[in-house]
Measured scan of single mutants.
Amino acid sequence: MATADDFKLIRDIHSTGGRRQVFGSREQKPFEDLVDLGWLKRSSVDSRATHYQITERGTSAAL
């Protein structure tokens, strides 16, 4: 179930172009929650960072 923080984060991601790069596993937790909701997808993972991209469902949630 989505929380107020989830909606705040997806709106922030949407307003800044729909993509986010995250460093460190602790910082990934809120983004992984949005992946579980179907609002974000992991577009790539490298040794230092994970890249996320907003989905259509995420765009709808952000509006």
Rank of each mutant, 00 (worst) to 15 (best):
H51N: 13
K29T: 06
H14E: 06
Q53V: 13
W39F: 04
V22P: 03
R57H: 09
S44G: 10
D46A: 07
V45P: 06
F7T: 04
I54A: 02
D46T: 13
I13M: 04
T16M: 09
I10G: 00
Y52F: 04
Q21M: 14
A4Q: 11
A62H: 02
F23H: 11
R48Y: 13
I54N: 01
V22F: 03
P30E: 06
S43M: 15
S60V: 14
A61M: 09
A61W: 04
L37I: 06
P30Y: 05
I54T: 03
G38E: 04
D36Y: 13
F31S: 01
Q28L: 11
T3V: 05
H14L: 13
R57W: 11
A49Y: 12
Q28F: 06
T55P: 00
R48N: 15
M1F: 13
R11D: 03
G17I: 03
K8H: 09
D12A: 10
H14Y: 15
D36M: 15
G17A: 05
D33I: 15
V45I: 11
A49L: 10
D12N: 09
Y52V: 01
G17R: 04
G58Q: 00
G17H: 05
S44T: 11
D33C: 11
S15K: 12
D5T: 08
I13A: 00
S44C: 12
R26L: 14
A4P: 13
R20E: 03
F31Q: 01
D12Q: 11
L40D: 01
L37M: 06
Q28D: 04
R20F: 07
L9V: 03
P30M: 07
Q21V: 15
E32V: 06
T16E: 10
V35D: 01
H51K: 08
D33E: 08
Y52E: 01
L37K: 06
Q53E: 15
W39G: 01
P30N: 05
I13C: 01
T55D: 02
T50E: 04
H14K: 05
G58R: 00
R11I: 13
S44H: 15
E32Q: 10
R57I: 12
L40K: 00
R48T: 14
S15T: 10
